[in-house]
């Protein structure tokens, strides 16, 4: 399972990177989302898969899966949500102001 997950994560990273390297703002945001999914799965895989019950003490399991990666991922999901929202609104705003969603046309001042 871990091997399969590692390959999956690699595919996510490759697709995400390719999308980030395109010009369209929307595709860039899609790319970052895919990469962050990849990161979550990677952290989860690193903790070891299915080595015990869910990390809840009230249940009758003798051992638990590693709770630390889960806490990290939980944080990552929330932060990722915040940044995605910010990116989306940023691209919306820049489209409104600049009239393009093509990053290669978003040049700065004259004297750059």
């Amino acid at each position: 399972m871990e091997t399969l997950m590692s390959i999956l994560v690699g595919v996510f990273f490759a697709i995400g990177t390719y999308l980030i390297l395109t010009k369209s703002l929307l595709r860039i945001i899609l790319g970052t989302s895919i990469i962050s999914h990849g990161v979550h799965l990677l952290i989860l895989t690193m903790g070891g898969l299915k080595t015990g019950g869910p990390p809840l003490l009230g249940l009758d399991s003798l051992s638990f899966t590693d709770a630390l990666p889960q806490a990290l991922i939980l944080t990552a999901i929330v932060i990722n949500f915040a940044t995605t929202a910010l990116f989306l609104v940023l691209s919306y705003r820049s489209y409104k102001l600049l009239g393009t969603d093509d990053t290669s046309q978003m040049r700065g001042n004259e004297d750059e």
Binding site: S6, G10, I15, T17, L21, T45
Partner: peptide, 14 residues
Amino acid sequence: ISIGVGIIVTLFAF
């Protein structure tokens, strides 16, 4: 570049 990144991440995970 993107395939490279993917391969590196996979190798790293392995």
